[in-house]
């Protein structure tokens, strides 16, 4: 018997992860290119991702086992942190001792929907998570806005 099965794309799953993580904020946008064009670039953490993520200057994968990685990430002001990473088709979660990132993508009419999650991992964050989320919201939107502008202005193959 073929029972209908509910669909749940990766951006919806990122919304769930956001709901489970106090102190995080989530922003979404649609890039006007097919998923098969967008995701291979963004999921190339050491090269493609860095080119579009403002504030991050370098990512170096130090260990890899299937969809699990360890990576060193360096930011614009020179801070460096080790992250645990899960990366697979349409889904990426990165976590250091203090910070969590998430990225998800799914094909939609007219392009690819991208979700971007960012937040702090601090003691007692569940007590002031709403405030932290509200403060981080403009930052997340700003990051995604810059990434979108960079994507739209990127050099394209003839």
């Amino acid at each position: 018997m073929n029972w209908p099965i509910g669909e749940l794309d990766e951006v919806r799953r990122l919304r769930v992860l956001h709901a489970a993580l106090p102190g995080t904020t989530l922003a979404e946008t649609v890039l006007p290119d097919p998923y098969d064009t967008v995701w291979p670039v963004l999921s190339d953490l050491e090269h493609g991702f860095c080119a579009y993520a403002p504030g991050i200057t370098a990512i170096r994968v130090t260990d890899r086992d299937g969809d699990r990685m360890r990576a060193d990430i360096r930011d614009r002001i020179g801070l460096r942190a080790a992250f645990d990473v899960v990366l697979r088709d349409g889904w990426c979660v990165m976590q250091s001792r203090l910070v969590v990132f998430g990225m998800a993508a799914t094909p939609v009419d007219g392009g690819t929907r991208i979700g971007y999650l960012i937040g702090l991992r601090l003691p007692g964050i569940h007590r002031y998570g709403r405030l932290a989320s509200a403060l981080a919201r403009p930052f997340a939107r700003g990051v995604l806005g810059v990434a979108r502008r960079r994507w739209l202005s990127r050099p394209r193959d003839a």
Partner: peptide, 16 residues
């Protein structure tokens, strides 16, 4: 179903 699954998972994860 997609809305229901998303809502159910949000409740699960928030109450874990």
């Amino acid at each position: 179903a997609a809305d229901a699954a998303q809502e159910a998972l949000i409740v699960v994860m928030r109450r874990i």
